[in-house]
């Protein structure tokens, strides 16, 4: 082991299964002693939302957006076989049986492993999220911050 390597994942999707894949890779890369960053943009930002309703100063459109999108990873749908919410229920049951970590657990573990969670500021504004609605220990950045990490990175993924 010489200089530490880095893994940079862009989580664009707001699907439970895709967030799960992203966070499994993030945790695996942290176990590889990589410097790991997960950049959340667009629908992927929902993974960073706190699960309850958070009071924030918002306009009408922002409030509507907030209502239409899942509050936190646990409320996300599946990219396939969602079946109006039945799919996630079924897969969570199967996951329990197989002792698979849930996405909220994977996110917590990623934070424990010092994975850097980043919210894309531009899409945070676009979708009308306020800082108090998102997890506390995250950073806010833009495309240059991602590229700064990724240009010297070893693993780069867009999910």
């Amino acid at each position: 082991m010489t200089e530490s390597k880095s893994t940079n994942i862009i989580l664009f999707s707001g699907d439970y299964d895709k967030a799960m894949a992203a966070y499994i890779i993030a945790n695996g890369a942290a176990a590889y002693d990589h410097k790991v960053t997960v950049f959340h943009t667009f629908w992927g930002l929902n993974a960073l939302r706190k699960d309850g309703k958070v009071e924030a100063q918002k306009g009408m459109l922002e409030k509507m957006f907030g209502k239409m999108m899942p509050r936190g990873a646990d409320k996300m749908g599946l990219s396939n076989m969602n079946m109006a919410g039945l799919g996630p229920k079924m897969i969570k049951k199967v996951m329990k049986k197989h002792n698979t970590s849930t996405v909220p657990e994977l996110i917590e573990m990623a934070q424990m492993q010092d994975v850097n969670l980043v919210a894309c500021q531009m899409t945070v504004d676009l979708l009308g999220f306020k800082k108090e609605e998102l997890l506390d220990d995250i950073t806010y950045a833009g495309v240059a911050a991602y590229l700064g990490e990724a240009e010297d990175g070893n693993v780069s993924l867009f999910i």
Binding site: I24, G28, T100, S101
Partner: peptide, 14 residues
């Protein structure tokens, strides 16, 4: 035992 990916590798590293 019983733990699924990525837990075994995460715990091993720890």
């Amino acid at each position: 035992k019983g733990l699924a990916c990525p837990m075994p590798i995460v715990q091993t590293k720890k």
